[in-house]
Design a protein around this nucleic acid. Structure first.
Length: 585
RNA sequence: GGCCCCGUAGCUCAGCUGGAUAGAGCACUCGCCUUCUAAGCGAGCGGUCGCAGGUUCGAAUCCUGCCGGGGUCGCCA
């Protein structure tokens, strides 16, 4: 259990007792009350703003309320000091013994430590990757893939029921272009005559593979057919084949989606007509002429009537088109239906992870979700900013096979899965990220992947040494929890590290609530740093090493701490999808 | 031009959704290896949180307007 929740309950109980005693009014609004670690550890272990938040309601100055609160909190056995500071903070110092006892929570829970019931089983749909099935995944997709997957894992850890979803954009003009491009490569494969790919079609080398596979399957079957016959065949074959590649690439990153939804199937099911009908019934659709975008040259602009959605009524800047001139739905219209579909499938909370180029699309989608679900669905769009791929400061060359971009496969081959997954989470998603092959492969503390892995490996190393020297000791988490006298962890550094480990549940809840998986990466860096520091204490003073010959009591206590560190790091890496290593090579 | 994101130490970035003296890493200056992996650790140096207003007991954080960088902008998805 989250230790700060524990103290929050104690503080609220103290306030209620004060109300009952007539020192404070009853029915206090405690919604803005926070119980947190103070920023500066020298202020204590637990801090609350209760007195300041309640000052107005109680009609008393903050310090007077603080006095009341402090008097009651001092009586708690685990509180060694309660002080009023600054404008009215109440700071508590908690007995070191409290923290030490709590360490057993980590040892008993193992890598499930930090799991929360905060989400209460609420269904959340996280949609990520959703790359168009017209070519292999780009390096840029890696970021969205990792952020989405880690966010999904984080939400699961926080107690939400998560669906991981991929939206296949297999409708519209782009897949027609794919079909035509594939046909040329197919003909090339069958006849042996090099194809000339006109502009407007996809020139990528990878379509040669698709053409050859189609030729292998169907032979010359399509050569003398009409376009009306070969186009759907080529299109569907290409989509299926390329989607297979995409799934392979994702599997290489240990990313698996629960649901793949086809845009084409969605349209065919009539979902779009039905979704748009509901907007129409609400009077949110009309035919109108849009103003030209400001700053656009007038000669590029011809006013024309379009079927529009009143996005402006839901916070967007302009109304948005729903129909193309040929009468078919726009991508946006399909997307409205798709989001409604997700809500109707039973997930009221929607998260979309998109690339930077879709930033301009966020407002209209949020507006549409509001409109089409009658405010029932909540959509949060996470935009992943650009990734600048470098190698030793030089931009990485584009893929030969794909022609115009670096593929995700190239990046994986260059640095490996764990490095990609970790580094992609070392920035907030809305911050651009520089990804330098040379830097992320470096084995030094400048490389956060290495630094965190090294801390875990050091823990495992200590535990291996202990197991060799004392084959009869139970070094499992529960074994150490019951077999170690944790009061032997008496140095301030050890208690600091315990406190940090015990803040893991709180971090998970905060990160899950904010939809910010990167916080896990920063937290693990902190844990690793504290552990490396403790390790080096043993370099300066041999009595501070973890394994003390002839002192079973202190050794077991320290092994319990080491074990707990390894468990928390492993638990954090699991959310990030990174494999913890046993030793560095 | 409209909209979105970003602007924090010389550099790369955190900052727990409004709290206390704004934190790490790199770089620079010192110090620590007969010892569980020194692939590491410690100390020092370094900031008008882009600028100007506003809200508040209290602002890097919220609001408004500027400045700078990136992205995007009517039947591409």
């Amino acid at each position: 259990m989250n230790v700060f929740k524990d103290f929050e309950a104690k503080i609220k109980a103290a306030l209620e007792a004060a109300s009952a005693a007539g020192e404070l009014p009853s029915d206090l609004d405690l919604s803005r009350l926070t119980v947190e670690p103070p920023r500066d550890a020298s202020h204590g272990d637990v801090s609350t703003n209760a007195a300041m938040v309640l000052a107005k309601q109680a009609g008393k100055p903050p310090r007077a309320i603080a006095e009341t609160l402090v008097a009651r909190l001092r009586a708690l056995p685990e509180v060694t000091a309660a002080e009023i500071a600054g404008p009215g903070f109440v700071n508590l110092r908690v007995a070191a013994g409290y923290w030490r006892r709590r360490l057993t929570d980590v040892l008993v829970a193992g890598t499930t430590y930090g799991a929360s019931t905060m989400g209460n089983g609420v269904a959340v749909n996280v949609e990520y990757v959703s790359a168009n099935p017209t070519g292999p995944l780009h390096a840029a997709h890696a970021r969205g893939a990792v952020v989405g997957d880690a966010l999904a894992a984080l939400l699961e850890k926080a107690g939400y029921a998560v669906t991981r979803e991929y939206y296949i954009n297999d409708a519209g003009a782009q897949v027609e272009v794919l079909g035509r491009s594939t046909y040329l490569r197919y003909r090339e494969a069958v006849t042996g005559e090099a194809a000339d790919i006109p502009t407007g079609l996809y020139p990528g080398e990878y379509l040669r593979d698709v053409g050859q596979l189609l030729a292998a399957r169907d032979g010359a079957k399509w050569l003398d057919k009409d376009e009306a016959e070969w186009l759907p065949a080529c299109r569907d074959f290409a989509v299926e084949t390329i989607l297979g590649w995409i799934k392979d690439d994702l599997a290489s990153m240990n990313i698996r989606h629960d649901v793949f939804t086809s845009e084409r199937a969605l349209v065919a099911s009539g979902a779009v007509d039905s979704a748009l009908k509901s907007l129409e019934d609400q009077g949110l659709i009309y035919v109108g002429v849009l103003e030209p975008p400001k700053g656009k040259k007038p000669e590029d602009w011809e006013p024309r009537p379009q079927t529009l959605f009143k996005a402006t009524e839901f916070g967007d800047d302009v109304d948005r088109p729903l129909k193309k001139s040929d009468g078919s739905w726009t991508y946006f219209a399909n997307d409205i239906a798709y989001h409604l579909d997700k809500v109707r499938r039973g997930t009221p909370v929607l998260i979309d992870v998109w690339g930077a180029d879709h930033g301009g699309y966020v407002k209209r989608m949020e507006a549409a979700v509001k409109a089409v679900t009658g405010g029932q669905g909540a959509l949060d769009v996470k935009i992943c900013q650009l990734v600048h791929l470098m190698d030793n400061g030089q931009p990485v060359k584009m893929s030969k096979r794909a022609g115009t971009f670096v593929t995700l496969r190239d990046v994986l081959d260059a640095v490996g899965r764990d490095v990609v997954r970790f580094i992609m989470l070392t920035r907030r998603n809305d911050q651009t990220l520089e990804f330098d092959y040379a830097k992320v492969r470096e084995q030094s503390k400048d490389n956060p992947v290495f630094y965190v892995q090294y801390a875990h490996a050091r823990c495992r190393s200590v535990l291996r040494h202990a197991a060799e020297a004392h084959a009869d000791w139970d070094l499992t988490g529960p074994g150490l929890a019951s077999g170690a006298d944790l009061d032997r962890l008496d140095s301030p550094e050890e208690v600091d590290l315990i406190r940090l480990l015990l803040s893991w549940p709180r971090l998970i809840e905060a990160a899950a609530e904010a939809h910010e998986p990167h916080r896990v990466a920063f937290y693990l860096h902190d844990v690793a740093s504290a552990f490396h520091g403790l390790w080096n204490k043993g370099k300066d003073d041999a009595t501070l090493r973890f394994l003390i010959e002839g002192d079973e009591g202190v050794t077991k206590a320290r092994l319990a701490l080491v074990k707990a560190v390894s468990l928390v790091i492993a638990s954090g890496l699991a959310i990030m999808g990174v494999e913890p290593v046993e030793e560095m090579r």
